[in-house]
Design a protein around this nucleic acid. Structure first.
Lengths: 238, 238
DNA sequence: ACTCCTTGTTATCGGCGTTACGGCCGGAAC
DNA sequence: GTTCCGGCCGTAACGCCGATAACAAGGAGT
């Protein structure tokens, strides 16, 4: 049975392994992060890594989580604080993303270019953050493309920008590239003014009903059904 | 000294190795491309690979070159033909790039995410092609940003887009993402801004999609159908 | 005929991710 | 207090990998 002391020591050695792997990754590059090297640097045996992390991917995921947590806690919390302006929040998130990639090149390349199948937990975490920010844009009536489309565009542009910058020598990087790409994407996905000044449910639904006939890509039957349902919902008690 | 027969046989076995490696990459994935597996599949000994290609990276580069050559020769040569319209050429080149990435996922991931130092020859070749196209844009006076900046933006967007598409299951890929990203970049780098027809209808629809879950008086099935139709309409090719 | 260079073959090196196994230690039951 | 037993730890190993050394064979050039 596990006592509190056991779990504490377990967490300690786990943290030590993550710290050792992080240091190796930063100082010696991705190729130096082997199970044996990490185990030796952390002063544990190789199988311990597998008992604590499952396999090497689990270790890398733990390293990513640790580095990202350190990064966001190192920065002022203002990065994630809601400014009230969803566009400003998206911009600051973009800049944080680019800066994180340039600060941790090896780790970024490791998690962003995970070849096989499932994406890394760090990637899905980042996508979740981005998804929330995009949703706020949509809810404020500022998006003029599909929400998922906007999400994928920002993600593609951000990832591609960081990978491009990482692929060139430090001294000849175009530091304005990030801002230019952000402006390019924003110009394409943002509405100049909110489509519906009043973003309450009913107001949006009423406005939407007026543009429903102009929606492309739908059959008349589908438009008719949507109109009927809209009417029913808007006349629904409570 | 090498006789013609020698070089022919040398080229033959080289081509056989490249073909075997290509087949393994396509059918069994990147992890299956080992020097031993390739040697066995090609019917040669392992050291032969090192005599002909130097090391495994050399083999991968040869595979990339071979697959790209097959691809451009399989397509009509019109892809690279100068239409006279530099913008149209850039567009067709972009589409060819995206299509190549989706057609050869393992190879693309292998050459686009080469972790260490120097970029792959395939990457620099692609960048050279892109650089020529961008130069033609600049020569025609169509660029409103720095030539190198435009190059990096197109490269970042294209690479990021393909990687994003490759990272999601085949059946849920947003096939319009490539076109949307291309338009976003073009709008930002071209002097003559192409007219964007309509925006308010889309913006209203996107906003409505965010309040859809809160609409009263509807069944879950009706809400789900409306969400699906909205998504289809918003990602509908204009 | 002799030499040299290319090719084919075997065996091997060091390292990698991962795991099987046996001893050990701490709590449980009597 | 003694005995038992179930889960951790460390050792050693497995099966691969990329890469190379060493050597036999055989034809080309002089």
């Amino acid at each position: 049975m596990l006592t509190t002391q056991d779990t504490a020591s377990r967490d300690d050695v786990r943290a030590g392994i993550v710290a050792a792997a992080t240091r190796l990754l930063r100082e010696k590059g991705a190729n130096a992060v082997t199970t044996r090297a990490v185990a030796q640097a952390a002063g544990v045996q190789a199988p311990t890594i597998y008992r604590l992390f499952g396999d090497k991917d689990g270790l890398i995921d733990a390293v990513a989580e640790h580095v990202m947590a350190s990064y966001v806690s190192g920065k002022s919390i203002a990065a994630d604080a809601a400014t009230g302006d969803p566009v400003a929040d998206l911009r600051s998130g973009w800049r944080a993303h680019v800066e994180f990639g340039l600060t941790n090149p090896e780790l970024y390349a490791l998690i962003a270019t995970r070849g096989s199948g499932a994406p890394s937990p760090a990637t899905v975490a980042g996508l979740d953050v981005l998804r929330r920010r995009v949703r706020r844009l949509a809810a404020a009536g500022l998006l003029r493309v599909d929400e998922e489309r906007a999400l994928l565009m920002i993600h593609s542009a951000g990832n591609g920008t960081v990978l491009t910058l990482l692929g060139m020598p430090t001294d000849q990087r175009d530091l304005g590239l990030g801002e230019a790409m952000l402006e390019a994407v924003l110009t394409s996905i943002l509405a100049t003014t909110p489509a519906t000044p009043d973003t309450t449910t009913n107001a949006v639904a009423v406005t939407f009903a007026t543009v429903l006939p102009d929606l492309p890509g739908l059959t008349d039957a589908e438009r008719a059904l949507m109109a009927e349902w809209l009417h029913r919902s808007l006349t629904h008690p409570t």
